[in-house]
Every structure is written in C-alpha cells, then in structure tokens.
C-alpha cells in the first residue's frame, strides 16, 4: 500500500479513502429511504389524479383513499430527516430534493382539494398550505437557518408550488368536462395569486427560475378556460370573483 518513496505519507490517502468511503456508506443508506419515498409519491399522485375525473361532491372518497399513502410518505420523510440530520444538510440534499418536492406537491394538492381541513362534510377546495404548515404535516422543520439539520427549504416549497399550479391548470379544464363551472374560477384566482407572488421574486438562472417562467403560460391556460365559460354564459352568477376586463 505504501508508496515506494518518501514523497507521500501513506496515511494521507488512507485517511482520505476512509472519508470518501464513509460518504459512500451515507449515500447508500439515504438511497434506500429516498427510493421508498419515490414509490410513495407515485402512489399519492396515482390516487390524487382521480380528482381529475371525480365530481366535486365525491372528492372525499379520493381524499380518503389518499390518506394512507400520505401517511406513508410522512413516515418516510421522518426517517429521511433522522438519517440526513446526522450529516451536513447541504452535503447530501441534492440526493433527495426532487423526491421531497414531489412529496410536497402531493400534499399541497391534497390540501388544496380540501384534505387538510376535511371534517366529514363536503370537501372545501382552494387552500394553500404555507411552508410552515407543510412542515407541520410532514413533522419536519422548515427553512432552518440557525442549525444544520434536515429541513424543507424555500426553494423546494416554491418548486412544489409551480407543480401544484400545473396540476390545477389541468384540473380547471377537467372540472369543466365534469360540468363543474365553479372550480375553474377558483383556480383562476388562485393561480393568479400565486403568479403575482412569484413575480416579485428576483430569481437567478436556476431550476426555480425555469419552473416559474412556465407559470405565465399556466395562468393563460386557466384564463382561456374562464374565457370560454364566460363567452357561453356558463360562469355561475353567485361566484362573482372574476372581474371582467
């Protein structure tokens, strides 16, 4: 093992090899948890996608069916948080940020559909969970600054939010297909409000920027739906949330 010269103290590379091997072991441990989360995210999205074909009144059945999968994801995120908090957060966060974003998006959609406040009656749509509320659901800290532990970052939340907008854009069209002319209006306002928020951010050239650049097209997509409805006098009279321009 030792070099045939006094050039290199063999301990140097032995020490480095140990460090790199330790990191590899950490990665392997995290990888298993992250893969589990990925699977659970797929399950959440599979169940929640039924919202696109479920009439408003039947939404509770979708929410109920998703509960188990969301609970699984919450447990996995806790496991991830436990394992990851032993390491410097930003050393490995690239490994899971995609999967955490997907989990956030699933929970945001679930909450928007009324899952968070569901009390056995009608599901009430339109709620946006804040970053802090998401943290409470997932039982992990958010936007940490003073200590180096696992947490949900602002960027992850914002990226999940852009995915939520995409999902809702799709829902706006599909609601119309189901004969529901009210939710497109709700979605229209919601998407506009989110977009207005994104507009005040000074984004750099990164993934968040690319994601948020797509928002304006989603805003337009939903507006088109609302336009189609109003053109045909299908906009419900009581929901005068939309001001015609």
């Amino acid at each position: 093992m030792s070099a045939p010269s006094g050039m290199i103290d063999p301990a140097i590379f032995e020490g480095l090899q140990t460090k790199v091997d330790e990191d590899t072991a950490v990665r392997d441990e995290l990888k298993d948890i992250i893969q589990a989360l990925e699977k659970q995210n797929r399950n959440i999205s599979f169940v929640l996608s039924r919202a696109h074909s479920t009439p408003y009144a039947d939404l509770p059945s979708v929410l109920k069916a998703s509960e188990e999968h969301i609970q699984n994801a919450i447990e996995t995120v806790s496991k991830l948080a436990h394992a990851a908090s032993k390491q410097p957060y930003y050393k490995f966060n690239g490994m899971w940020s995609r999967q955490v974003q997907d989990a956030l998006q699933g929970i945001l959609f679930w909450a928007w559909l009324g899952g968070k406040d569901y009390n056995g009656n009608e599901a009430k749509c339109g709620r946006l969970l804040t970053l802090e509320e998401l943290g409470e659901v997932l039982k992990v800290p958010t936007n940490l600054k003073d200590r180096d532990e696992f947490h949900i970052t602002i960027e992850e939340y914002l990226i999940a939010l852009t995915s939520l907008v995409e999902e809702l854009t799709r829902l706006a069209r599909n609601a119309v297909t189901l004969g529901d002319y009210e939710r497109p209006l709700l979605i229209n306002q919601f998407v506009k409000d989110v977009f207005a928020g994104f507009q005040i951010l000074n984004l750099k050239n990164d993934i968040l920027r690319r994601k948020s650049d797509g928002l304006k097209y989603r805003v337009k997509d939903v507006e088109d739906v609302v336009y189609d409805l109003s053109l045909r006098n299908l906009v419900p009279k009581k929901g005068v949330t939309i001001k015609e321009e």
């Binding site: 946006l128 970053l131 914002l158 409000d193 989110v194 207005a196 928020g197 005040i200 951010l201 984004l203």
Partner: peptide
C-alpha cells in the same frame, strides 16, 4: 390583492 404577498415578500428577502 394576492393573499400570498406577505409570504412571498419573506421569500424574496431570503432568496
């Protein structure tokens, strides 16, 4: 008019 403005202002400062 956006109800999320305060939240986004916080994000802006941190970003």
């Amino acid at each position: 008019a956006s109800p999320f403005m305060a939240m986004f202002e916080g994000f802006r400062a941190e970003l």
